[in-house]
Nucleic acid binder design. Structure first.
Lengths: 323, 323
DNA sequence: TTGTAGGCGTTATCAC
DNA sequence: GTGATAACGCCTACAA
């Protein structure tokens, strides 16, 4: 492979001068610049990025770590990547499949200097383990976490969740079931709180969170539809933790002969494509902006140039699964 | 950052020996190995990957290039990434947004040695330009291409397409419209051929390909639904180029009051999640295996250890948008 | 304005 | 078995 020395030789200058021309830094006379440039042209030369990274101690590469690629995660990956590319970063994608060991390998990339920073969308290891890696570079997460060194782009979902609950109440629903993703998560805890507050406000009896825990996928949503079909006393609404769950529930319910919103209402969460396609009422909280903010946080940690984060807000998108 | 020299000093050996221990190569006495290992432990040392890449002239990194992340591309990205990780590769994701310049930047990563190979899912530049990069490393594409140096995981879609056509005919459809993605593509040309053969076989008059060209997204599918509503003489079936198009068409048609398959039939292509959710009859051609094959091809080019590709086949998945 | 030389952290080829 | 030492290709003081 052709390198600086080759260029230097052809152009009749030293490699230091070549470097100056390439990087536009330091004084170079017009004539030498020209000579170097033609040599570069002639030999079809590009600098070796390994060498640059080694020298500079930075790779301009950020890692995205996620268990898998759901539609919601796609939105995050896409917008984060685009934002990063715009600033000259390159993005690696690391899929952990919820295996803590694989996540560790990904974190090791930060330690071994292959990555300048990490966007850890959903973690597999405990926070303490992850925290220990922040000394090698910035780590930002999509989850909610109490930590002084791991940054987060979360928004407290209390308000958003309540928005949905109140809407259901206004439309006459009194027996609402909450489909939670993981009751150990801080975000879920916020939702539970919102639900409890809601029940107290309207004097309703809440169901226990444990009853509908760990409901995350399209398939989980479909299972809920089957469960519903077997119930004597049916609820009149479902609040879900994601559009994926809502999609599974709605589509399977229709297959089983239910009509929405006549038989019951459903509200999703995320406002991704699928909710549009299936006309599911959902709560938007600008995931794409969260992704951009995640990049901005990492960028701000890595460089002097500070980017200001986007304002985030909840919006209820009313479609056809609510009255 | 702590490096080999530090370890060498602590362990009282040379850095050459440290290297031998780390890489398990060459003779090292049990006692020195021990000393080195405790030093590594003590200083919490990891080798710097830039230095290794520079020395070895390879990064163990493969790039995935795509215009954006659709659901189909997600399947490719996911399975390619998983396969690559399994073999110790790391994957970078580069989104071009159909901008040839951005694609060029991505290809430059191969030239500048940041990437060992590339999976170019969908290209933006002409093949000749892309071909010129194959001298820097293997390039595999998902598209169909006639080239001696760009590899491809395509399968000729003639058979798959005919499968759908024949099924529609068997169910009584005689006025079928084909929604093509891009009539300049070789794959589309195969579909057109299948359609022409089909029409001849059953003595039907084919419509011109230009009439329904460039139909790719959910939104495009929705537009077709509106178009359909305005037609006096309506077709009785649609063959689409992707589940995304089919999904847009089906969901919008339902909103406009059509019922499927009574009013007309639709067959998708890809068999991704959305077609399951919307009960769309579709043609499966194992995209996930194609992704694995793409990785295997790159791997086989890069290493001695050869992986054997998966067999691919078309299957018609009958659901509720056909009789 | 340009050149020299040292170093970034490894690996690999020699000697010993 | 182990240790110098020379690359890998680039950047950057420091000199000139």
């Amino acid at each position: 492979m052709t390198n600086m020395k080759d260029i230097a030789k052809i152009a009749g200058v030293s490699s230091a001068t070549v470097s100056r021309v390439i990087n536009n830094n330091g004084y170079v006379s017009h004539i030498t610049r020209q000579k170097v440039e033609t040599a570069v042209e002639k030999l079809d030369y590009v600098p070796n990025s390994q060498a640059i990274s080694l020298k500079k101690g930075a790779t301009k590469t950020i890692g995205i770590i996620a268990p898998n690629i759901t539609e919601t995660i796609t939105v995050l990956v896409k917008n984060f990547t685009l934002a990063a590319q715009k600033k000259g970063y390159t993005v690696i994608l690391y899929l952990t499949e919820n295996d803590p060991k694989k996540e560790l390998s990904a974190l090791e990339l930060l330690r071994s200097k292959q990555l300048d920073g990490i966007f850890l969308i959903i973690r597999s290891n405990d926070w303490a383990t992850i925290e220990s890696y922040t000394k090698y570079g910035p780590i930002v997460t999509w989850q909610r976490v109490k930590s002084s060194c791991i940054l987060s782009v979360f928004i407290d979902q209390y308000d958003g969740y309540l928005l949905g609950l109140e809407y259901l109440y206004a439309k006459g629903c009194r027996n609402i079931i909450n489909l939670y993703s993981d009751i150990r998560r801080l975000n879920t805890k916020s939702r539970i709180k919102a639900y409890e507050y809601f029940c107290e406000k309207y004097d309703l009896t809440p169901h226990s969170p444990e009853q509908f825990n760990d409901i995350n996928s399209i398939q989980d949503g479909e299972r809920i539809a089957h469960w519903l079909a077997e119930q004597k006393i049916k609820p009149d609404a479902f609040m879900t933790s994601s559009d994926a769950v809502a999609a599974g529930l709605v589509s399977q319910a229709k297959r089983l002969g239910f009509s929405l919103p006549e038989d019951f209402s459903v509200i999703g969460f995320d406002n991704i494509e699928i909710s549009h396609l299936l006309d599911i009422t959902t709560i938007d909280y600008s995931i794409h902006k969260q992704a951009e903010n995640a990049f901005k946080m990492i960028n701000n940690d890595l460089t002097l140039q500070k980017l200001t984060p986007e304002e985030l807000a909840f919006t209820l998108i009313v479609r056809k699964t609510t009255k």
